[in-house]
Amino acid sequence: MKLWKEFIKGWWKENPVFVMVLGMCPTLAVTNSVKNAIGMIGAVAFVLVGSSFIVSVIRKMVPNQVRIATFIVVIATFVTMADRYLAAYYPDLSKALGPYVPLIVVNCIILGRQEAFASKNGVVASVLDALGMSMGFGIALMLMSSVREILGSGTWLGMRVLGSWYIPWQVMILPAGAFFVLGFLIWGFNSINKAFKG
């Protein structure tokens, strides 16, 4: 029961993007199309689950003073693996994501989970926590990229959603649109939470 809670808390209650406002770079940068967002979600989930697993296994061997450096090296190793894999098997996607795959190293969601959770909990709980957080990140990115791609190009994952009458709202796929959509989503998220609490 307790493990289930660790798993689902990342979906809504402690959603890394909407509640904790972490990992903003990829959330804003790669959500101009659903395809890019899916690639980013996959890469982040792989790195997060992998490094949570390793960190929770070695947590008793790592001296407290060098723990951050250790976490960073573990994370950087997994990011290198994800980066090489994408470059080898999905060159187009790798090109579209550009520097944002290597930048997963400094994504605060990942380091944050190692510091706050994986370094203090067992392997099973840490992996479940990482999976839940990845799903929360995934939910946020899918929402963002769906809104931006449908409004900005009239398509979803490359399929036409809005008819030819629709004039694409260009700003949505430009940087400014990313800030607007995320701002409004966070507003909506807080409002829903407040309505349920009150």
């Binding site: 406002v21 400014a176 990313a178 800030f179 607007f180 701002g183 409004f184 966070i186 409002s191 407040k194």
Partner: peptide, 15 residues
């Protein structure tokens, strides 16, 4: 508005 304070309004301003 209360629920827009903090990150929300900052992001919209940044936009």
């Amino acid at each position: 508005p209360e629920t827009l304070k903090g990150a929300g309004i900052t992001l919209i301003t940044a936009g």
